[in-house]
Design a protein around this nucleic acid. Sequence first.
DNA 1: ACGGTGAACCAAAACATAATTGGTTCGCAA
DNA 2: TTGCGAACCAATTATGTTTTGGTTCACCGT
Lengths: 245, 245
Amino acid sequence: MNKVTAIDVRRYVVDLLMNGSLAANARLPTEREFSEATGASRRVVRQALSSIEAEGLIWRRQGKGTFAGQPLEPVSALAAEINQTAEPIEVMEARLCIEPEIAALCATRATSDEVARMWALARLHYDVEDDEVTELWDSALHRLIARCARNRPLQTAYTLLDDTRASRDWQGMRARTRSESSLRETMAQHIAIVRAIEAGDASAAREAMRDHLLTRINAMFQAAALAGTTAADSDITYDHEASHV
Amino acid sequence: MNKVTAIDVRRYVVDLLMNGSLAANARLPTEREFSEATGASRRVVRQALSSIEAEGLIWRRQGKGTFAGQPLEPVSALAAEINQTAEPIEVMEARLCIEPEIAALCATRATSDEVARMWALARLHYDVEDDEVTELWDSALHRLIARCARNRPLQTAYTLLDDTRASRDWQGMRARTRSESSLRETMAQHIAIVRAIEAGDASAAREAMRDHLLTRINAMFQAAALAGTTAADSDITYDHEASHV
DNA sequence: ACGGTGAACCAAAACATAATTGGTTCGCAA
DNA sequence: TTGCGAACCAATTATGTTTTGGTTCACCGT
């Protein structure tokens, strides 16, 4: 009797998350499929998945499935209709306004459980072969932080911005702005954000989030300048917001 | 041959709209039902309905039906959805996060025309008696500032928050928080905001907007304390946000 | 020849039904 | 007792049918 333990299944699933090619929707196989694939009983599979979910790497929904990252808020239909015409740079500017405040609120309200999940997402080492994957885990952390601000209107506003990332010409933008070094920088900034949140330091969280977003925005500007087609004056960095205090 | 003309059907439908106890956005009979009820051909019914629709009394949607009044805009629909679960204090907190940044952007982007319009709104002397009117002009100024930030996602987000004024227990809140002195204070703060925007001073505009919102929030807290029913600890002022450097 | 009628057809939205999926319980057996 | 499998439950999606406004067209009466 070759017993497959929850630890084994856990390793199997985490491997799939890190190395395997996730579907576009970040959807994982069903519990029954995992059970069949690993030879473990469904109970064991559920134990493994539950532990991974508690860590914050996946989320599950009855009738829907199991997914990598963090859940999207279900504003879907209306949000898509509203945000049809948003320019990427506009969206980033809006995020620069809202997300630092969200991080500040989050610092005063996140539970230790939630902070632990943030650490798991911030410290993730994944194969960076695919832009989609990078975006998946990045957005998961940001989404989790937004949720922990515990302010529904704000979260809805953030979701409005978050939804636009998935659509349209963001894809090409991502491919150009990502690099080995910028990835390392992003991870360092994520860690700084979570550290501030864990410390309950609202001001530090706000500033860390600002730094992070400013870095990303400037990367976008530089990518646009390299591409050359759009934005004639995009070689200037986005700093007129730095008059903050 | 007793022909029923479009005019006849029109009168029939308008009568239904006026006398009948139809709420706003109530559903009307289908075109086929109208046709059967009036004896007119469907074409005639459609002519009549089209004229009524052009007047703005009804709206139609393929597959959905014919409805009284004007269709709900998607943003308003989302706002209504939020209002079912969001507390007024949550909304004010969200505004406290977003609006100062909007004011800062506005200070760098508003044209002189727009500033002139802001002055007109800020200097308006309105009667304290009528809460509705007070709220209307206050909302108008804030919306104008949001528009001048020239960022559609941000403007949408603000509209989402501002729409909540129209609904539910916001009414009672208004009546309790408004007074002769608070009205004067509000006007002074409005003027300070517009002055900073006119000067192009982003930091000053941000701070002026913060002050204004904090004042309003504390007024709400005090009103809640007076009402006594809700929020046991509402006698403390809302200041844990004041750590803002 | 003209205009209206009724029927048929199209597309969008709602409604109803079946299938899928995570969550839960229970009997059975090692 | 513990763990497994099966069945069942509830939420969600997928699919098909019906309803409804929008459109086209052959036909009839004047």
